[in-house]
């Protein structure tokens, strides 16, 4: 029903060797761009998984963008994606206030 690319083997490789999670991030970016280019639906969870890899690499803006994509593609994820996005925005705001 969906084109998963290398999602499963990449996640397996990442669990086996955590340094491979970066390869997974790049792999997901490429695969999602391909699907979007072909106007094909991105399988459930892939935007969010990429968002989480961004978050763990320290880019919360990119994470929020991916969580928003997940929510817009898959309405079932709305509750979780909104909650995660709200938390990240709150954290960003708190950090901005500390800096001032």
């Amino acid at each position: 029903m969906y084109d998963w690319g290398q999602y499963e083997p990449m996640l397996y490789a990442g669990y086996k060797d955590p340094t491979k999670m970066e390869a997974m991030r790049i792999g997901l970016e490429t695969h999602i761009a391909e699907l979007e280019g072909k106007k094909q639906k991105v399988p459930p969870g892939l935007y969010a998984e990429l968002g989480t890899l961004y978050l763990q690499a320290g880019s919360s803006d990119k994470a929020i963008a991916m969580y928003t994509n997940e929510r817009n593609t898959w309405p079932e994820s709305k509750g979780l994606m909104d909650a995660m996005t709200r938390n990240l925005e709150k954290r960003r705001q708190a950090m901005a206030e500390v800096k001032q």
């Binding site: 969906y2 086996k16 969870g45 969010a48 989480t52």
Partner: peptide, 26 residues
């Protein structure tokens, strides 16, 4: 390892499956 093998068949069955690695982080 087993966790990586569960989402794809369930999603292909027609369900929205929550992303397992994101779920773990949450």
């Amino acid at each position: 390892y087993v966790l990586t093998t569960v989402p794809v068949p369930l999603a292909e069955k027609g369900y929205y499956v929550f992303p397992v690695n994101t779920t773990k982080m949450v």
